[in-house]
């Protein structure tokens, strides 16, 4: 049973790889804590939803200069999700504390 599942998984992965589709398009987490995005740089496949969670005592935002990303203020415990469908490099920062910066690379 387990072996068969693995085989199916491998087949699926090979199929996806051969058709150029993302091997995995689920969720990836970025934690906001101590006035920093962790990880500060994240590489994901197109179609991935990045989920930012504010674990800091202070509100923060997730915003890119071109307003592609523009979260509402995230208080402690608040979550912001964004599905990256286009390949590219997305730089973002916290509009309250602009020294806080992060990057999502979508391949």
């Amino acid at each position: 049973m387990t072996m068969r599942s693995n085989r199916i998984g491998l087949l699926t992965a090979l199929l996806l790889a051969s058709t150029g589709m993302p091997a995995y398009a689920g969720e990836q987490a970025v934690i906001i804590d101590n006035f920093a995005f962790q990880p500060a740089q994240l590489t994901v496949d197109a179609g991935t939803t990045v989920v930012w969670t504010n674990r800091d005592d202070i509100p923060h935002t997730v915003a890119s200069g071109d307003s592609t990303l523009r979260s509402p203020p995230l208080d402690t415990g608040d979550v912001f999700r964004f599905a990256f469908t286009q390949k590219g490099t997305y730089r973002y920062f916290c509009t309250l504390h602009p020294h806080m910066q992060g990057t999502v690379i979508v391949r």
């Binding site: 730089r91 973002y92 920062f93 509009t95 602009p98 020294h99 910066q101």
Partner: peptide, 16 residues
């Protein structure tokens, strides 16, 4: 003469 300024909007990434 009092001058009240706003230096908290349109902040740039990495900036002050």
């Amino acid at each position: 003469h009092f001058i009240a300024l706003n230096n908290v909007q349109n902040l740039k990434a990495g900036g002050l």
